[in-house]
């Protein structure tokens, strides 16, 4: 970087907040186009104030008590009321079915009020006798990245920061380490003399990311999917440091998705839009796979390099691959037991 660029970069850093503020003021319409607008930020500030008050009055023990005591503070508007109740909800794992239904109702209503959107948020539980597994055929993948695109659209990933769960590495034939791999290639594929290897969250059976979370905001479900409760995560990023596969992504800023591109078929633990300051990751498309569909990446792959299925079903394709192909996993020595295998034809 030349000195000039450095200075320009510095200036940009200085200007950024002010610029954004100006934009926000001038262009009120722009905010509502995004799934999470300035309103969300406002409400967060409100939450903090109320929380403080709640702590001070010692009423924090029961959200219901607090809510009646302090609702005048929120101005009584429906949105403030809903946000208030959302703020004091429990960790998803501890909620009863009624509480889950209640939060879904609130979230759907909030989307309506804030973005005029009508999402359908499921809470479909893990199905009995299902343990999901994934296999990736490195002889077939050509690096087309259709999976990446499908994932972004299916899972409402932040377009602002160009977030991607899937990474495709281009590796020279004869090399095996990721150290020599190229994770950002911008040229025509497939490149002569190279093979391609995709990574994402591997849904480890023994996930280090889950162990370290101080608030239990991330856990492994019974069907083997490792999920994050976006409303419970405090954003400490310990899990991101603990993941040996770069499987996690953090929302460094408020995610931005054009309103007409938001996938409205959502799951509480899956692709519902996230807020800034929370962790997210691949969920094996929980909103699809628990209903018997394939993950978006598997469906999008034009070469058939991606195999997904139930590891407990002896007749599944994934079981066939595991039984008949030469398979390997990344960093097996760490004992994480990823449910994501690589194989060759």
């Amino acid at each position: 970087m030349s000195n000039r660029e450095k200075i320009a970069e510095k200036v940009r850093q200085w200007l950024k907040p002010a610029d954004r503020r100006r934009l926000r003021r001038d262009d009120g319409g722009a905010d509502t186009r995004f799934a999470e607008g300035a309103d969300a930020v406002m409400n967060k500030r409100l939450d903090r104030r109320q929380a403080l008050k709640a702590m001070v009055t010692g009423a924090a023990a029961g959200a219901a008590v607090v809510q009646t005591a302090c609702s005048p503070l929120g101005g009584g508007s429906e949105k403030a009321q809903l946000n208030w109740e959302e703020y004091f909800k429990k960790n998803y794992r501890l909620m009863t079915d009624e509480e889950r239904a209640a939060t879904v109702t609130r979230l759907e209503r909030l989307s309506k009020l804030e973005q005029n959107a009508d999402p359908h948020i499921q809470t479909t539980p893990p199905q009995k006798g299902v343990l999901f597994g994934y296999a990736f055929n490195i002889s077939k993948c050509q690096g087309y990245m259709d999976c990446v695109k499908a994932c972004i659209e299916e899972n409402n990933l932040d377009r602002g920061s160009n977030m991607q769960y899937i990474r495709i590495f281009e590796i020279e034939n004869g090399q095996d380490g990721l150290a020599s791999a190229n994770g950002d290639f911008y040229h025509e594929v497939p490149a002569e003399g190279h093979y391609y290897l995709g990574t994402q969250c591997f849904h480890c059976e023994n996930p280090p990311c889950v162990k370290v979370c101080p608030v239990g905001a991330t856990w492994k479900e019974d069907d083997g999917i490792v999920v994050v409760d976006y409303d419970w995560c405090i954003g400490c990023r310990y899990c991101e440091a603990a993941c040996p596969y770069f499987g996690r992504r953090f929302n460094w800023s408020t995610p931005q998705i054009p309103a007409d591109e938001v996938n409205q078929e959502q799951h509480y633990l899956g692709n519902r839009p996230r807020k800034k300051g929370v962790m997210e990751k691949c969920t094996f498309c929980v909103q699809r796979t628990r209903k018997g569909k394939l993950p978006a990446c598997v469906e999008a792959c034009p070469t058939g390099a991606r195999v997904f299925g139930n590891l407990l079903d002896p007749d599944s394709e994934i079981r066939y691959v595991l039984a008949n192909k030469k398979v390997f996993r990344l960093k097996e020595e760490l004992g994480t037991e990823p449910k994501f295998w690589y194989f060759t034809d």
Partner: peptide, 30 residues
């Protein structure tokens, strides 16, 4: 320093044992 590092400092009450979900003893952070 820990507080300013949090993505959601207003949700830090999730760390309070009983009120929140204190993942002790698994998480070294707790």
């Amino acid at each position: 320093f820990v507080t300013v590092d949090l993505g959601g400092p207003h949700r830090a009450w999730h760390l309070i044992p009983k009120l929140g979900y204190f993942n002790w003893p698994q998480s070294l952070l707790t």
